[in-house]
């Protein structure tokens, strides 16, 4: 982004991986998610591939949205990704609507909406939570509380410190979980998704997590809204490193096997970047394609 290769802004998900992985482990392609402006991790964990994802970031015609969405708007219906959203708090009403459809059609699909602590102040979240609880919809509200709404600390933008406390106001359970512990998220999400799937209604799951990079980009804006010591303290609890240690301690994996996973994933990433860089941009003729509904109204 900073080198001008990727148009628009990138909001990196690094640090918050345990949340996407722990939740998505309980979803199939048929289940829907809505994502946020910080949604790369959601796409990957929901089953997205690197090549079309990177192509979308680069704005190329081979991307998930044919280059018209970019980082903040990746969607793919086959994977149940109803879209990332550049509007803070834009996702919850969409997920609630999908959940309404799931219930109306009597499917067993569950919709999950990811949003941040900042979004939990938006009216869209409150309206969606109210309606989801009113109709007992199969919807899980996953608040990724990374402590900041962009550059504003949570203590400076809301009077409650646990977003989960707000759940009681809508008549749904609210749970706080360590968002840096993938197994803790996994267990809590399992209960929330099962609750939704079995017709018992929505849940607000608040995952306490942290983003390692700045609000935007890799190099950041150089602002002083948080200290290096704070960042390092959270990195000391890194979800991936902790999970690696657990797998080795329990004899599930070895250091060598984990290194092989890193090598394989790095290779896939580099292939994805190469694919994106070598792909064409959309043409001028493509500009209005896939934008407006074309067909007869019934």
């Amino acid at each position: 982004m900073e080198d001008g290769k990727i148009p628009g802004a990138l909001h990196l998900y690094v640090g918050q991986e345990a949340v996407a992985v722990g939740v998505m482990a309980h979803l199939s392609n048929a289940d829907q998610i809505t994502s946020t402006h910080r949604g790369h991790g959601h796409v990957i964990a929901k089953g997205g591939e690197f090549s079309p994802m990177f192509a979308e970031l680069y704005g190329k015609a081979t991307g998930y949205c044919k280059g018209k969405g970019g980082s903040m708007h990746i969607s793919n219906m086959a994977l149940g990704i109803l879209g990332a959203n550049g509007i803070v708090g834009g996702g919850p009403p969409i997920a609630m609507g999908a959940a309404f459809s799931n219930k109306f059609r009597k499917t067993k699909q569950v919709s999950v909406t990811f949003f941040g602590d900042g979004a939990s102040n938006e009216g869209s979240f409150h309206e969606a939570a109210n309606m989801a609880a009113l109709y007992q919809l199969p919807c899980v509200f996953v608040c990724e509380n990374n402590g900041f709404g962009e550059y504003t600390a949570q203590t400076n933008h809301q009077a409650v410190t646990d977003v989960a406390d707000r759940a009681a106001g809508y008549g749904m359970p609210g749970v706080v979980v360590d968002g840096m512990d993938v197994m803790a998220v996994y267990e809590a999400a399992e209960a929330a998704v099962e609750r939704a799937r079995s017709g018992q209604g929505p849940t607000l799951l608040e995952c306490k997590t942290y983003r390692y990079y700045d609000h935007v980009g890799v190099r950041g804006m150089g602002l002083t809204y948080r200290t290096d010591e704070e960042v390092e303290a959270w990195k000391a609890r890194d979800a991936i490193e902790s999970f690696e240690a657990l797998l080795i301690k329990q004899g599930v994996s070895t250091k060598k096997k984990i290194e092989n996973v890193y090598a394989r994933v790095n290779e896939e990433i580099l292939e994805g970047v190469a694919f994106a860089e070598s792909s064409p941009f959309p043409t001028e003729e493509d500009l209005l394609q896939d934008v407006y509904f074309v067909g007869a109204a019934s």
């Binding site: 410190t161 646990d162 359970p173 749970v175 706080v176 979980v177 267990e187 209960a191």
Partner: peptide, 21 residues
Amino acid sequence: NPASGKDIRRLAGKASVFDNR
């Protein structure tokens, strides 16, 4: 303790939420 009364037992069981206010 700000974290008490908020864990998974509100979901897996039927425990009450104890909000910080």
